[in-house]
Computed example of a mutant assay.
Amino acid sequence: MTNITIEVVKDGNIEPCRELCNELMAFQQSRAVMAPEVFDRMNFDTRMRRSYDGALRTHVLIARDEGVPVGYAFSTVEDLEPGDDKLPAWAPNRDSADSKGFYPDWVELPKKIGFLSNLYLRDGYRSMGLGKKLFDSSMEWLESFPDVDLLFIYVSNGNEDALRYYLKQGFIYSHEVFGGFIKAVYKRLEK
């Protein structure tokens, strides 16, 4: 852990995040108290790759130790249209009438919204300040867009440490997604 670097992916090659993203999905599954089996359908291809390819703007940071990826942060800016709150294929409670989607009732669409989609560090790299660096760099990027005034982070059920962290960083609890499978937090940006 002597030579930790953080790089911004500029060439579109997010493949170094594959193993880390799959580890994140397994980590979230291990913490889930609600529908952990849903994470069986979540991986790099179904989550990060799909989101990266479909986003208006993307920002990926990779933390490396001696060149080996040990963590990453993935952020996007989305241009939302009416109806964009449809349920993804992996969503639990897809057929439930009360299964609320990603956006709360108070979001007026269309609107550009920023997202911190993933933030993950391997064991042994947490509690070193590295996660804070990834978070701060991601927020700086998201806040740099004059047409983005709302940020969201979605926290998987059972990951109360992450939820508390984001709340301490100035985010506000918004709503439960898919009947509590995910908790949404948001932050309005003063422009």
Rank of each mutant, 00 (worst) to 15 (best):
R64N: 11
L87T: 06
V60E: 03
R50M: 11
F39S: 00
A73E: 05
A63Q: 08
P69N: 08
D40E: 12
A73Y: 10
L61D: 02
G83F: 11
D84H: 14
R47H: 12
Y52H: 14
S75E: 10
P36D: 05
E81G: 00
R57H: 15
P92N: 02
S51C: 08
S75R: 06
M34E: 00
T46Q: 04
D95E: 14
A35W: 05
A63L: 14
D53V: 12
Y52K: 01
E66N: 15
G54H: 12
R47K: 07
P36W: 01
R57V: 12
R41C: 01
P82K: 13
L61P: 08
D65H: 09
W90V: 04
D79H: 14
R31S: 04
S75Y: 14
A89R: 14
Y72A: 02
F39C: 02
L61S: 01
R94T: 04
Y72Q: 05
W90T: 07
W90E: 06
E78W: 11
D95V: 00
R47N: 10
S96M: 05
R50I: 05
D40S: 07
L80D: 02
P88H: 06
R41E: 00
A32M: 00
R47D: 11
S51H: 09
V77C: 09
F39Y: 14
A32F: 02
S51Q: 12
V77D: 03
P36M: 03
T46V: 07
R31K: 15
M42H: 03
D65G: 02
E78G: 08
A32E: 00
D65K: 04
G54N: 15
D53I: 05
V38M: 02
L80V: 10
T58F: 00
Y72M: 15
L87G: 02
P92Y: 03
M42P: 09
R94M: 12
F74D: 01
I62P: 12
D45Y: 10
D95N: 12
V77K: 08
A89W: 10
